[in-house]
Simulated scan of single mutants.
Amino acid sequence: MAELILNSDKLTIDCESGQTILDASLKKGIPHAHACGGKAVCSTCRVYIDEGLENVNPRNEKEQKLADSLNFGPEIRLACQTTIYGPVKARRLVLDKIDERIILSEGKSNKPRSLGEVIDASVMFVDIADFTAFSERTPAYDVVHVLNRYFYIAGNIIKKHNGRIVDYYGDGFLAIFGLDHQPNHTKNVVSAGFELQKAIKDFDHEVHDLVNTSFKIRLGAHTGKVIWGSIGIEGMRKEAAIGDTVNFASRIEQANKVLNTDFLISEALFKKFESCCVTNAEYEIDVKGKTGVYKVYSLEYVSPSVLAETV
């Protein structure tokens, strides 16, 4: 016998030798979802192994195939295919009909999706200074045309430096570096920031006569742990970056307006380049939702030889 503690149900189950987690929980009277009848097709019986992963059997061929298609981490197992040989603590991940419908909708797409993982990444928010005033006095066609031109230029620069724009909001965007576990994401975010600034200076000259206005961008960057996953319903789903690192990067970008700066980075990012960068100034800012004050740096220069290693 092996002890299974289902944290989601606050129950302890004694599993017989060779018995799957699904069979054991069903016999205990737990309404454990298994839409495909336990054939390793639908994944609605999935569980998360909180403790004791070493006490479960390796994935068989059927489970591995489904796990690969859904980007499951090692802790997410199919209860219908998993047997235990020692103490295990686990959670059912499909608790009701809403959960079941969400899970079943994943199978309608051929595109793998991230179910949620913590990654090391660098985050950059960028927006155009005083764009609201520009949009209010400019014909709609010109506003959209200028934005599309701007996002085209910016998007290609982000892509060049192994980053990805994951969200747009008006005239701003959020870019993430390190999604594929790239070790150089801190250098990439700074390299992209500098190239963006240069490109927007050229962009300003290109569109100035068209719309009779000047453009300047504000950038805020931070590095740390990011929760990365797919959110939303079928047909309106997107990949999203969540967590304190993302929120802090957003606050840093917003601080540019108050401090009259262009490119602010966090202390965590500054420490990556402290010996080879030049800053205009060091500031302390309050951050909504966080206690205390935090140092940020107005970035002017990082040694090209350092940044060239990643481009």
Rank of each mutant, 00 (worst) to 15 (best):
S8H: 06
N110H: 14
K271L: 09
I217G: 02
V211D: 00
V246Y: 02
E54D: 13
I119W: 09
V143L: 00
S305M: 13
I231C: 01
K108D: 04
I76H: 01
Q254D: 15
A249Q: 07
K27H: 03
E61N: 09
G178P: 05
L66K: 13
G232Q: 07
Q64L: 11
I128D: 00
Y141K: 01
S105N: 08
R77F: 07
S305K: 15
E16R: 14
G52Y: 04
V144M: 02
L307T: 11
V278L: 11
L196N: 03
E267S: 09
D167L: 05
H145M: 12
A67P: 12
G220P: 01
K10G: 15
D180W: 04
R46D: 06
L179I: 12
I21G: 09
V123T: 03
S214E: 04
L307K: 14
M1W: 11
S266T: 12
Q182A: 11
V143K: 01
I227Y: 15
N148H: 10
A249W: 01
G235E: 02
D209T: 03
C42W: 10
V211L: 03
A241S: 09
D96L: 08
K225C: 05
N60P: 05
S43D: 02
P139F: 00
N260M: 06
Y168E: 13
A249H: 00
N162R: 14
G172E: 09
L179D: 06
L210F: 00
D209Y: 06
S214A: 03
G235W: 03
N57G: 06
K257T: 12
L70N: 14
V306W: 15
A40S: 11
I13E: 08
D14L: 15
L264K: 11
E16W: 13
V211E: 01
G193R: 02
F263P: 12
R46Q: 08
A249P: 06
K225W: 00
T82Y: 07
R92I: 03
I102M: 12
R59Y: 04
K198M: 10
F134N: 08
I285L: 00
N260Q: 13
